[in-house]
Amino acid sequence: MPAPANVHADRPDRPAHFARHIRAVAPGLLLTGTIAAAATALHGLPGAADLSPMLLAIVIGIAGHNLVGTPAWAVPGVKVSLRRVLRFAIILLGLQLTTAQLIEVGGEGLAIIAATLLATFSFTVWLGRRLGVDRKLAELIAAGTSICGASAIIATNTVTRADDEDVAYGIACVTVFGSAAMIALPLLAGPLGLDARTFGLWTGASIHEIAQVVAASFQAGHDAGEFGTIAKLSRVAMLAPLVIGLGLLARARLRHAPGSAGHAAPPMPWFVLGFLAMIGVNHVVAIPSGVKSQIVALTTFLLAMALAAMGLETDLRKLAARGLRPALLGLAAALFVASFSLTLIKLTGWHG
């Protein structure tokens, strides 16, 4: 008996859908790639060697977005660069690390990271109440500052249920103040007498976004960059329990409210697992130095693409759209996380 005519009718559409997706994201990917290439070229100029391509890429992106505007045709590819390209680059970073280096963070280093996270989140929510900032917006800024920037805000909003304007404001806050920290902290490493690993721990425990940590920590050398990345990813791994805890609190608040039974499961930052898997691969497989150097160059370029995308989505005017108090909260939280983590590092005498 012949099969019905429509059994496989959807299959021819799949290649067409994929082709449409590629056409949609290609212009934005080309734009972020061009900015990354320009940043790489600028990095090679005299006097710019101390500025990483990643830092230069986000500066170019921010300038382009706020002076000219990000064209609509580039938006889909910019979003892919900011999310998928960034996470793939972080996974590749794992090939530059070994399990022995992970152990170097140690229990004391992890305790500093965890204490900083909890103190920053609590301080930000408390100060938000004192400043009269809406609780949901304060929680988003707290999560973005204490854990991992925009991705933490998006994950936290699965249980906070803030509106789109709050999410946009929170992302603008952590991007701008995280970018400021990315520029400021490397300038303070020398005056504060921080060695490479201590500076790496400080950046990993205090700067908002993963890409910002990478850009800042590598300013102090390869060892600082590797350690900053490890510290930051250890911090990212704490996102899931925090979101679960916020979900439990949200459920308790809405227990007697009608229609409040639904509860979204917190997402798992899957790229952290990929990062750890690549560390395991690097521990087991001896990668030739020539191949590894190419991987390092590719990883840096992909991170520059991601930071270019971050700049192209950073609208400085959003900080003024909801008044000054949430912006002050974001600034205070950024100053708190940097000073609190540095104080713990100094008090414990941590050196890695």
Rank of each mutant, 00 (worst) to 15 (best):
A240H: 06
A250T: 13
A211C: 00
H208S: 01
E209F: 07
I279F: 13
V285Y: 11
H208G: 04
A252P: 02
R235F: 11
N282W: 08
M278K: 07
S217T: 10
S260I: 09
K232A: 09
V281Y: 07
P288W: 13
S206C: 09
A215T: 02
K292M: 15
D223C: 03
A220S: 12
S260K: 14
H283R: 13
V214K: 08
I244D: 00
P241G: 02
S260Y: 07
V214R: 10
H256P: 02
G228K: 09
A250R: 15
A265C: 08
R251F: 03
E209H: 09
S217M: 10
F227E: 02
I295K: 09
P267N: 11
V281T: 13
P269Y: 07
Q294K: 11
V284D: 04
L254K: 12
E209N: 04
R235Q: 11
I295D: 04
M278A: 14
S234H: 05
H208Y: 10
N282K: 08
A205P: 01
A224I: 10
A220W: 08
R235T: 07
I287S: 06
G245R: 13
L249Q: 11
E226F: 12
G280I: 11
A286H: 15
A277S: 14
V291W: 06
F275P: 03
S206L: 02
G204H: 07
R251Q: 11
L254F: 12
G280W: 10
R253W: 05
V281G: 12
Q294W: 14
T229D: 03
I295G: 05
F227R: 07
M268S: 10
V284M: 06
M278W: 13
I279V: 11
H283P: 06
A250F: 05
S217V: 06
G228A: 06
A286S: 15
G247F: 09
H256L: 14
A257L: 14
R235D: 08
Q219F: 10
R251W: 01
G274K: 10
A261D: 15
F271K: 03
S289T: 15
V296P: 02
G247Q: 02
F275N: 09
V281P: 03
F227G: 04
G204F: 05
Q294R: 14
F227S: 07
P266L: 00
I207S: 03
R255I: 10
P266F: 04
R253F: 07
G225E: 04
